[in-house]
Amino acid sequence: MIEEKKDLIEEIQKNFTRLSKGQKLIAQYIVDNYDKAAFMTASKLAKIVGVSESTVVRFANALGFEGYPQLQRGLQDIIKVKLTTVQRVEMARDYSNEEMILKKMFKADIENIRATQESMDFEVFEAVVDKILKAEKIYIIGLRSSTALAQYLGFYLNLILDNVKIVGYGISDIFEQMLRVSEKDLVIGISFPRYSNRTVEVLKYAQEQNATIVAITDSFVSPIYGLSNYCLTAKNNMASFVDSLVAPLSLLNTLIISVGMREKEEITAYFNKLESLWDKYNVYDNEK
């Protein structure tokens, strides 16, 4: 299927000569304005190009899609990588007031969580939980906007397990932090658009060391998907220049709780000890 390919624009260009006259008009518009076309309905695209809506549907079919919505999703996946931050800001220029922003952002995040839940492969999810519990050491790598996700996952897994290492920028180089990774270890790579090249490089190194790799990313066109033994995807379809991490965070919550429930008796004793320490050193405000 075309939607599994990394560059739909290139695919459109490759098939240009065999398209009908009307379909060529659509193809040219998309190539020149992919950032706008990705969020247009079939009828709006047809009106702008000057063709019928059925021609737009046939254009999608000609590229191997079941219909226009599938083509549109393919375009949206690609622009998450191609668009600069400046172009993303430009996309949001139609948000005329804060009320519109509030409604649109909440709606987008709700849809991302719903799509993530519906597309989740439970067998893969269960296998990832197994690997987390069986690994000799767990390395978590997430850079740029994914740093917050890596830190969050690492913080809570560290409360449950004693073999978790968060890899990131600091005094030591990232590769120095990964120096001892081996086939007994698990490396969790987290990467969402715009994908960090450094994360890809680190996972390639881990792959060379025969470590088991779990990718947490947005889709199967992500550059870290092909490096992974297991992949969990969370939707982050953007509605602005800010990458939405709501669905990825919800996925991480589910993963943390699933690991915790497998170790329920052990972590209950551990948390009781932690609570005593927190009380003793006034870590939290306990005043009523």
Rank of each mutant, 00 (worst) to 15 (best):
E123M: 04
V242Y: 13
S54M: 04
E123P: 02
L102Q: 14
V129L: 00
S258E: 05
A150L: 04
Y270M: 09
K134I: 00
T217V: 14
Y34I: 09
A27L: 02
E66F: 07
Q28P: 07
S196M: 01
V31T: 04
K24M: 13
K103H: 15
Y230F: 14
D121F: 01
I160Y: 00
R114S: 13
K235I: 10
L274P: 03
Y225M: 03
L19N: 10
A148H: 02
Q207F: 05
I256V: 13
A148P: 00
K44N: 11
L143I: 09
I78W: 09
L277H: 05
E208S: 05
V86A: 08
S196Q: 03
E275M: 13
N210R: 08
I79C: 03
A37H: 06
N237R: 07
E118C: 10
E66T: 10
Q23H: 13
Q70I: 11
L232H: 05
E266M: 06
E11I: 08
I110R: 12
E123K: 07
A148G: 00
I224M: 06
V86F: 11
S222G: 07
L251R: 07
D77C: 08
N112E: 15
L102F: 15
A239M: 15
E126I: 01
G74P: 06
F125G: 04
D162P: 02
N229S: 11
Y169K: 10
K107Y: 05
G226L: 08
L75Y: 11
R88E: 01
R93C: 06
V181E: 01
A60G: 06
V246H: 07
F122G: 02
A38L: 10
E176Y: 03
Y29P: 08
N237H: 05
